[in-house]
Nucleic acid binder design. Sequence first.
DNA 1: CGACGGTTTTAAGAACTTTTTAAGTAAATG
DNA 2: CATTTACTTAAAAAGTTCTTAAAACCGTCG
Lengths: 224, 224
Amino acid sequence: MQILVVEDEISLANAIKRILEQKGFFVDAVHDGISAVDYAEAMDYNLIILDVMIPRIDGFEVVRRLRKKGIGTPILMLTARTNVTDKVTGLNTGADDYMTKPFDTEELLARVGALTRRTGDVVVDRIGFGDLSLDVKSALLYCGDESVQLSRKEFEVMKTFFYNPTMTITKDMLIVGVWGIESEATDNNVEVYISFIRKKLKYLKSKVTIKNIQKIGYRLEAVQ
Amino acid sequence: MQILVVEDEISLANAIKRILEQKGFFVDAVHDGISAVDYAEAMDYNLIILDVMIPRIDGFEVVRRLRKKGIGTPILMLTARTNVTDKVTGLNTGADDYMTKPFDTEELLARVGALTRRTGDVVVDRIGFGDLSLDVKSALLYCGDESVQLSRKEFEVMKTFFYNPTMTITKDMLIVGVWGIESEATDNNVEVYISFIRKKLKYLKSKVTIKNIQKIGYRLEAVQ
DNA sequence: CGACGGTTTTAAGAACTTTTTAAGTAAATG
DNA sequence: CATTTACTTAAAAAGTTCTTAAAACCGTCG
């Protein structure tokens, strides 16, 4: 499942890229209108996420050119919130959906889900570290030919580690990432989940351990 | 790269602080509007993250006052999701971007990235002196291909040296910087930590030493 | 609805690490 | 050479993380 992200703000482009890659999509990112048309022509994407305000030629013009060339890839338009109504709803450019910036991850994924679902393609992905791999679809954690089922929260914690394999992750990062930025979760919640996961790693006889550095955070380590 | 976070919800402020520090930013957090203005005036921040609903004077007024004083630091406003009009007001008063609460880590980092990028400054996650380098995310101190884990306080002491590599650091400076201005820590506390760190430098076989100048303080020296 | 199974949260004591204290020793200064 | 200052170490204290068990929660199915 291939997605093209067209966004000139590099860091936003990267953020979108990462979010989608975490969900198992393959993502290309380009930063201007001409490149967008080139890429979309050259490769058969399942979805194009397209910012309106981009250099060289704007988003609307990109849509027009692609449709003219008979490229029917679903397009999700991004617009600044302030000029939503007049621009997007007024224009009949051929985009399939639009989303106002700023948006949050859930919103993005919901829309991407809706637009890619029709193709029926299944996104399967595995992420891993050391001798571990995690099936993102089933939340099964594998080590060799053993596996264990992770619960929702165990899964979210594990993903955080796998996406930042060399980094030291603070408890606050886990609280924000797993429980949400406004949650009431305490350090103890994190500790309990780390404990649950360690028990499962032990059961799997994995070489990977979760190391704690007091007052600093947790880090994955592959023992010898 | 310095960021000021203005948010009265202490736990949210801390969460944001930790996330940004993890990415290598230096973050101060204050919890009301008056302090925000004071801090922003006193220090040259690269970005201010500013909640709208804060005690004493609200976020908009903070922006107005800062802009009036000629302080052009980029400002990222935080507003409750429901309040659409806030956004318009915020942008009119001179904020550079706004973000609705709740937001997730990705979104925060994307926006912070966008607003700090223009200054061209690179976010530092390693600082060093001589043959030493310190990873600020993990508190690992490297020398060649060896590394040691620093404890929280060792890490704070080391950071103070690295940020002031040529300076002689007094014990009082270390006490204030590491233990806090209100602390009861004595010179002996500093001496003990200097001793701990020297032991680790020896283990790393670093060329860097911590030299004491009696009655004055400590200074890093790279022995040829 | 109400019971069941799994998941998540809460809470409390044990285990562990870091930090502080304190005391003896070494080094520097006048 | 006396005195102050700094260094080192070990033990005590403080703080944190770990583990476990029980309680609360949640969705599903009879």
